[in-house]
Computed example of a mutant assay.
Amino acid sequence: MSEYTQGVCHDGAAILKDGQPLSIEHILEALMEADQQSLTFDRFRQANNQRQLEWPGYEQTDTTFKALEVCGEAGELAEAVKKLIRAERGIAGSTVGLDAVADELADVLISADLLAAHLGIDLSKAVIKKFNKTSMKYGLETKLGEDHQ
């Protein structure tokens, strides 16, 4: 994996990759690549919906199935967290690492997005609304949205 640092070259300040100065073109390319790796709700929904169309039997999934899928994934997340705690506390039994918990968290988000898409819910708007509602309820200043960033 490459390491980016800052430094000083013969003609001034520079961004270094693995110790070597980058040209402005390479810096812009790296920034664009990093932007492509960031995830938005829209990109997530688009890819999730596309993959769902490829999934054998997807047309048989209804609201009940999708809701049960979210519950099942949440249960798998709870199980992974339990096994992680076992590992941290030295409790006998099977254990997992943080990667397993991350995988299950991702599965919860994926299945929740599929349910939201099925119900016509825009998760981006729903999260902003609920986040801000909770902040208001408890008198917290941090809010999401264009006016609150």
Rank of each mutant, 00 (worst) to 15 (best):
D35T: 07
E146Y: 08
E146R: 06
A112H: 01
Y4I: 10
L123R: 13
L109K: 01
S23Q: 01
L39Q: 00
A78N: 04
E59T: 14
K143Q: 12
Q60G: 13
W55M: 14
E141V: 00
D103V: 10
R86F: 10
G12C: 04
S23E: 03
L140D: 01
E69S: 11
S124C: 09
L114D: 09
E54Q: 12
Q36W: 03
K130L: 01
F44M: 00
Q6T: 15
G7P: 08
K66M: 12
V108S: 07
A74F: 10
I24M: 09
S94H: 06
I27H: 02
R45G: 01
K83H: 08
Q36H: 07
N48I: 14
K66N: 12
I85L: 15
G75F: 15
Q46P: 04
Q37H: 05
H10I: 14
T95M: 07
G139A: 12
I128P: 01
A112K: 02
A67Y: 04
D103P: 06
A106F: 05
G120H: 09
K129C: 07
Q46M: 08
L28A: 11
A100H: 00
E3G: 11
V101W: 01
G90S: 07
Q36D: 05
E79P: 09
Q52M: 01
K137R: 12
G72C: 10
L31F: 06
I121T: 04
K133H: 13
I24Y: 09
L115C: 10
K83R: 15
E146N: 08
I24F: 09
E76R: 00
A67L: 11
I91F: 03
L53S: 10
A14E: 11
E3N: 11
